[in-house]
Design a protein around this nucleic acid. Structure first.
Length: 498
RNA sequence: GUCCCCAUCGUCUAGCCGGCCUAGGACCCCGCCCUUUCAAGGCGGAAACACGGGUUCGAAUCCCGUUGGGGACACCA
């Protein structure tokens, strides 16, 4: 018999949009599958009725698609082992639970939440591990009938065998859990829905996955899961628990922590490229030779292996992601870069309102040039040309006001621009430099005030690209408007405090 | 508290079946060059084997312990 084909899965719970840690787990699964001609499946774990929503499922799938991670089987495309939504597989879980009960490997439990909670607290107070105490473990049929008559809730608990469990992990080696590490746990809740560990094992077995690659937070769950595989009589897949992604304070990266983005959708909104995010995420826990770090999607598919995934948790390094995004942007031909900027602005409803928007954005993108780190930066650096009005940084304006000869220089420059022919960066620059010499003004003393007058800021693209972006008319207008600054009572300075 | 995982520059990491390591690459930071600003680019620099014991001729690399960090102990996933 030939080696069974690789089958892996990503199993998100639809309780929000895709988290960056989930994206990395999905990516590793995907790279592993694609690199060996395997199957990638998507399974939606929506057994938590309170928190699961259809919008969330849509959002997660959308984020995955945006990242370029695709799947062969899933809730939207179907497949030979469906359905791929756990909420649609309830009869399967019930049947499996019944099978375990019949074999005495599981049993009905009638304890209420309150009783469980009270006993948990008591155990904790007494310094014991808060595990299930076995109250319903050995009830006979008569006692069970009695409890049912009382109208107590009825869940199904797994009878944990009193022996150690070994998790064979591809990244961590054999991890041994002592026999008393876990108590009997619920597999079917009183509402009839399965718990995570049970549904996960039943599905992973039914869907024939060969490898389960998931986050380290599941390592101790795997302790329970290996018992379940054995009891159910299914072969175990190979496990690979990848380390967590951490916040800068080294806590598990999660939705809280306020300021920092943790969802794929947020990075998308901030103007990051999916290929850069993929490249960056791949390097969180995986490396090729420690030297090379720019990898296309195809490179990653070809080179990725679980052997080179390390076991150390990784802090998410936002600055490096930004740098990498810039690398991708810079390596892109201008036309493509401009097209991506356009698509980005359109997606967020921020396209400038003008007839020649495509041409304008290409010129703006060219003008911003190497400064581009995210797609949002075109608006950041060239926003002064997006509309008639623009804001002026008061501090920059004050600096202009303070420069000797700035007013005359601006006025002369306005005149020059008005009659310049051709109106084109190189020619404009040559003539402006001549003007500076004639006036006896250093280049910086001419260019700096002009930059502020035209863009409202100290930092901007090259001055003559700025002019060409604005067009002759607006350039002259803004230059002349700046000449009037000297007539104003300097509102930006605290001159007249009453 | 109990169990489990982890431990190289601030961060991501290479090295970890011992000598090739006076520990390599990248981000960040600093300096210089380029330059109309800011970037980008070029050159240079600062910056780490958590600690303590072993084993060995020799340890970042193997073993034990300590410390630190994290995860899990639910009718959440």
């Amino acid at each position: 018999m030939s080696e069974p084909a690789v089958r892996v899965r990503f199993a998100p719970s639809p309780t929000g949009s895709l988290h960056i840690g989930g994206a990395r787990t999905a990516l590793f699964n995907w790279l592993f599958a694609r690199g060996r001609g395997g199957i990638m499946a998507l399974r939606v774990e929506d057994t938590d009725l309170e928190r699961s929503t259809a919008e969330s499922e849509r959002a997660v799938l959308d984020d995955l698609r945006w990242l370029g991670i695709d799947w062969n089987e899933g809730p939207d495309v179907g497949g030979p082992h469906g359905p791929y939504r756990q909420s649609e597989r309830q009869s399967i879980y019930r049947k499996e639970a019944e099978r375990l009960c019949a074999a005495e490997l599981a049993y009905p439990c009638f304890c209420t939440d309150e009783e469980l909670e009270a006993r948990r607290r008591a155990a904790q107070a007494a310094g014991r591990t808060p595990q299930y105490d076995g109250t319903c473990r050995d009830l006979d049929e008569e006692e069970r009938v009695e409890r049912r008559a009382e109208g107590r809730p009825e869940s199904i608990r797994f009878r944990v065998p009193g022996e150690p469990a070994v998790v064979r992990d591809l990244i961590r080696g054999d991890v041994v859990f002592p026999a008393d590490a876990v108590g009997d746990f619920v597999i079917l809740r009183s509402n009839g829905l399965p718990t995570y560990n049970f549904a996960c094992v039943v599905d992973d077995a039914a869907m024939r996955f060969t490898h389960v690659i998931r986050g380290e937070e599941h390592l101790s769950n795997t302790n329970r899961q290996v018992f379940l595989y054995r009891a159910l009589g299914y072969p175990e897949p190979a496990f690979a628990h990848i380390s967590l992604i951490l916040n800068p304070d080294r806590s598990k990266m999660s939705k809280r922590a306020g300021e920092a983005a943790t969802f794929v959708s947020e990075f998308r909104a901030q103007g990051y490229l999916p290929e850069a995010l993929i490249n960056f995420l791949a390097l969180l826990g995986w490396s090729w030779d420690g030297e090379r770090e720019m990898f296309s999607r195809a490179d990653l598919v070809e080179k990725f292996s679980l052997e080179r995934v390390n076991a150390t948790p990784a802090v998410f390094n936002r600055e490096k992601l930004e740098w990498m995004n810039g690398q991708y942007l810079r390596a892109m031909p201008l036309a493509e870069r401009a097209a991506r900027v356009r698509a980005y602005l359109a997606e967020h409803g921020r396209l400038p309102d003008r007839a020649d928007v495509d041409d304008f954005l290409e010129r703006a993108t060219a003008a911003v040039g190497e400064r581009l780190k995210t797609l949002a930066d075109v608006e950041g650096y060239a926003g002064f040309a997006f509309s008639e009005s623009f804001d002026i940084d008061p501090k920059a304006k004050d600096e202009v006001l303070a420069r000797k000869g700035a007013r005359e220089a601006l006025s002369a420059l306005a005149e020059l621009v008005e009659s310049a022919d051709p109106f084109e960066p190189a020619a404009l620059e040559a003539r402006a430099r001549e003007l500076g010499e004639r006036l006896g003004v250093k280049a910086g003393d001419l260019f700096f005030p002009a930059r502020v007058a035209l863009t409202g800021r100290k930092v901007a693209p090259g001055l003559f690209e700025v002019m060409s972006l604005l067009g002759r008319e607006r350039t002259v207008l803004r230059l002349r408007a700046a000449c009037a600054w000297w007539e104003e009572p300097a509102p930006s300075r605290p001159a007249r405090v009453t």
